[in-house]
């Protein structure tokens, strides 16, 4: 591993283990990723990809070991890590009873946005949900939920974005659009960590690859 200044690392995982009951979802994983270098995370179901993304997002904390995200300690500076990262998870984080617009407005206000309404309407247009802005998420299809979830990610304007199966539940046009969104984020300097089974699409978007098997890093 090449030595880099800690400040220039998007990710520095040191011996991280995560236990879920009788199982080690991550087993002494160490990895570091320079800022601006995008990473493809591969592995079978249950190999620890989602656990790793949740730990990087500080949604979950490691049982043992530690990590820095964007040069910030994930335990001590958790708020700052959360502010600068965004996670697209299997769960959409959306409120079913609120409309698409209300869901985004909630996050925009929590982020302290001044002209929340304008920002949100711009975003809804961007992800193609402008006509459904006033509909409750409960009425949305899986693909539309995915679009709204990616709009949430874009709203945060993160420096590090964690995408867990972003292509799942999308039609071919949706996949192409998602690839374009990811490319645009990278152009703006966002570091992307992408977990997907679509290895071809993933490789095209990333520079490095980390393959997990039973919570350990292995050669693919």
């Amino acid at each position: 591993m090449m030595q880099t200044e800690p400040k220039a690392l998007a990710l520095d995982i040191r011996d991280v283990s995560k236990r879920y009951g009788p199982r080690w979802a991550l087993a002494r994983l160490s990895y570091s990723l320079p800022l601006g270098t995008s990473l493809l995370l591969t592995g079978h179901n249950g190999s620890g990809k989602s656990t790793l993304l949740r730990i990087i997002a500080t949604s979950s904390s490691p049982t043992a070991g530690g990590l820095s995200v964007l040069g910030l300690d994930a335990r001590e500076q958790r708020e700052d890590v959360r502010r600068q990262t965004a996670l697209l998870s299997h769960s959409s984080f959306l409120y079913e009873d609120l409309t698409a617009e209300q869901n985004l407005l909630l996050l925009a206000r929590l982020l302290g946005a001044a002209h929340a309404r304008d920002i949100v309407s711009g975003l809804l247009t961007k992800v193609g949900l402008a006509t459904r802005a006033d509909h409750a998420v409960r009425t949305f299809s899986a693909g539309m939920r995915k679009r709204l979830a990616i709009a949430r990610v874009l709203l945060k304007q993160p420096r590090l974005v964690l995408l867990d199966e972003p292509f799942g539940e999308l039609d071919p046009a949706g996949i192409a659009a998602m690839e374009k969104i990811i490319g645009e984020m990278q152009d703006k300097g966002t570091t992307v960590i992408l977990a997907t089974h679509l290895i071809e699409q993933g490789r095209a978007l990333t520079q490095r690859r980390l393959h997990l098997r039973e919570g350990r890093a292995v050669a693919a």
Binding site: A113, A114, G122, K126, G128, A177
Partner: peptide, 12 residues
């Protein structure tokens, strides 16, 4: 899915 003209105004 993407409408580039809507790009303005998102940044804050």
């Amino acid at each position: 899915m993407i409408d580039a003209s809507a790009e303005r105004g998102i940044a804050f």
